Computed example of a mutant assay.
Amino acid sequence: MYNIFSQVIKETVKITLAGQIFFNGSIIDLSKEIVVLFNGKDYIYIPMEHIENVSVDQDEEIIQQPTNFPSVISKDDKNDFSLTYMLNEAIGMYTEIYVANKQPIHGTITQVQSNYFVFHSPIYKTMYIATKHLKWLIPYTENQKPYTLTDDELKVSAKKGILPQHFEHLVHSMRDKLVVVNQGEKPYHIGKISKVHGAIIELQTARTNTTYLNLEHIKTIHES
């Protein structure tokens, strides 16, 4: 797929993601794991595994090539331009990301672990996001800040302690804590983790109803 996409670099394309999400723009960089699209305003970093379709868009107005370099660029060896590399390069940048609930999240990546990353949002505070569920990432332009907040207002307080390397171990460590899963997409995504049975999370909702969540479908989690 990577070699095929290289044939349409700098052409205007339409990219369809899972969930009927569409982007139009010009492919300006790519690797086996990442496609970088420029839509005339932003650089959009899209993990390859979420792309359903790419087509050359003959009807769209030609998008001018960018005059500035993207915030995160690939190395000479495209094999090094992995999703993990991109996330590490984006640490500390103001970014927009999309994971779940049809709502992009704005803030900064603060840490990257084996299969998840830590994201600080002015709205949700500290969030833990399973890397495989990241649909896209858009770095802010140089002078942009989320919600027009100042750097001091957006400052992230360092948390004490060492985080588990793997997302499943992190979720296990949240037993007996109040959490919000997948940005509260469903009513049963908010509650207290009472037990963890392997990949099944037992959650107690506000009215003490018990619900069971499959860890594989937990995209984001943060403490309430």
Rank of each mutant, 00 (worst) to 15 (best):
F81S: 05
K195P: 00
N182Y: 00
Y94L: 05
A158S: 15
E52F: 00
D59P: 00
E168H: 07
P70Q: 00
I193G: 10
K145E: 00
E96I: 01
E216V: 06
E52D: 10
N209M: 14
K159R: 14
I138E: 06
V179T: 02
M86E: 06
K75P: 00
T12D: 10
L163H: 07
Y43G: 01
E61C: 08
G40H: 08
D152C: 01
A206N: 14
G161H: 08
Y94I: 03
V72K: 02
Q20D: 14
V56A: 07
E168D: 11
L170W: 05
K41W: 00
V35E: 01
Y147L: 10
V196H: 09
K192P: 00
T12E: 07
E49W: 11
R207C: 08
I15E: 07
Y116S: 05
D76K: 09
I193C: 10
Y116T: 02
E11C: 01
P122G: 14
I190N: 11
S74R: 13
F23W: 06
I9T: 12
P122T: 12
N214E: 09
S26F: 00
K155H: 10
L178H: 14
G19M: 02
E52V: 04
E96W: 01
V72W: 01
S173V: 03
Y147S: 01
M93A: 04
T12L: 03
F5D: 11
V8G: 00
M127H: 05
N214D: 04
K159L: 15
I201M: 02
L149Y: 13
A206C: 09
I221R: 05
Y124S: 13
K32H: 13
K132Y: 02
M48S: 13
K195I: 10
T108M: 15
D151T: 12
I193R: 08
I200R: 05
I9L: 11
N143G: 07
H50V: 10
K160T: 11
Y2N: 11
I44A: 08
I62T: 14
G19H: 03
P70A: 04
I97F: 05
G40Q: 04
Y98T: 04
S74K: 13
Q58E: 13
V36E: 09
H133N: 05
N115A: 03
K177R: 15
I28F: 03
F38K: 01
S6H: 07
L134A: 07
I221T: 02
L213W: 05
